[in-house]
Write a protein that binds this DNA or RNA. Structure first.
Lengths: 225, 225
DNA sequence: CCATCGAGGTGAACACTGTCAACTTAGTTG
DNA sequence: CAACTAAGTTGACAGTGTTCACCTCGATGG
């Protein structure tokens, strides 16, 4: 009873920690995706959250940590989108891979700032890539990986790799190296997204058609005959 | 004689304008590509150039302008690299396109900071993309474009588009839309470069092989049969 | 019931940043 | 020599990320 009472009563503070944190994340996410990363200062985020800048540092080590937390939210979105396409239950592995590429590209284009933050900005102190590398090495060695070590980024890439593996397993591809092929497919999708979101005024002949042609090129290029 | 004297004597000032400008560009380029864009402040650039920060603003409107000037230098490099591959005089249009893609990717990987600055950072006030769009529209309409309006970026893209056109003209491709195909090829190369330079720790199975596979996928995907 | 503790929150400061108006300096020219 | 102009500096403004010392107040153990 004591511990239960503790928990319920602690919840009655002013605003509970997690709620504040969530509020800050919401506000920061809004401002950041409206005004951009540089134009959104810690002080302005704090002001909009009705709080002092100092408080932000009780919830996030620094600005990068705050932004990276927003990045995590994007991974959530991306992972959900990719999961959606798996749920559709397309039987043809090639159609599945195509659907996955489309989902990736559309999600990136729909959330340009977040995409830029997570995939086009190097935040080495997060060690996201290093963890990814470790994850992939252990996967290759067939090790079992504890659920709590699996990040959303890993989930996303694993989905892609699985889709690629399915196509390879069906003996439909020229190249058989699943890992390398998955990387190539990612590079293809990433190229599309990053080009389109950073060069909005370039005057691409037709973005939808470009996406279509590009994914087609990739898939056709990967397949036999 | 008067005007000649003016010019020669003016050269004896302290340091002539253009020389200072070049020096600043050199110093800034060095610092920027060693320490990164944010860690390189105007004051530190100035200090290293043995000058006050204020003076930088007599040569460049603001920091973005300075960085964009450095970007221009990268376009020079890129354009030279692409030209080199044309000079090689490969007869097979497919081999030519492949060589061009390789040159692009290698140049990007060899100059990651500059690549990031020019292709992965949106500097709308430069209107580079808008000019590009205008250029391409006029090209499509068959207009002649005055040499002084042609930027190095345009040259680069035109080289790519030409290489693609050669392949299309040889009736080797499935898709015949040169513009869209060129955009897709660019997206492919760009995806490779940007992924590799931002995610150095991702643990790509083998970068050289990835480039090989990726370009192959693209080319094979574009060709008939 | 009261001292204490810790989480939520603040104010003021530090060392920076990009930028600019006002000023000095020094070389050229009529 | 006087006037002009390009090269360069001083000193400030407003804003940045971040931190330290401090306060407040509800919950808790004695």
């Amino acid at each position: 009873m004591k511990s239960r009472a503790t928990k319920t009563k602690t919840a009655k503070r002013r605003i509970e920690g997690p709620a504040r944190r969530a509020q800050i994340l919401r506000v920061a996410g809004d401002m950041f995706s409206k005004d951009g990363i540089d134009a959104t200062s810690m002080r302005r985020i704090a002001a909009k959250a009705g709080v002092t800048a100092t408080l932000l540092y009780k919830h996030f080590a620094d600005k990068d940590a705050l932004l990276s937390a927003i990045g995590d939210a994007f991974f959530e979105k991306l992972n959900a989108d990719l999961e959606q396409t798996s749920i559709k239950g397309l039987k043809d592995p090639v159609a599945r891979l195509r659907a996955l590429m489309h989902a990736y590209v559309r999600c990136g284009i729909a959330n340009p700032r977040e995409y830029h933050l997570t995939f086009m900005t190097a935040l080495p102190q997060l060690r996201r890539d290093a963890k990814m590398k470790n994850f992939r090495e252990r996967m290759r060695r067939g090790e079992a990986i504890p659920a709590e070590e699996i990040t959303l980024g890993m989930m996303c890439f694993a989905r892609l790799e699985q889709a690629v593996a399915d196509v390879v397993d069906a003996k439909l591809t020229r190249v058989k190296d699943v890992a390398a092929l998955a990387e190539a497919v990612w590079a293809g999708g990433h190229g599309l997204v990053s080009l389109i979101i950073t060069h909005r005024d370039f005057g691409f002949t037709n973005v939808d058609r470009l996406i279509e042609i590009s994914t087609d090129l990739f898939l056709h290029g990967a397949l036999k005959d």
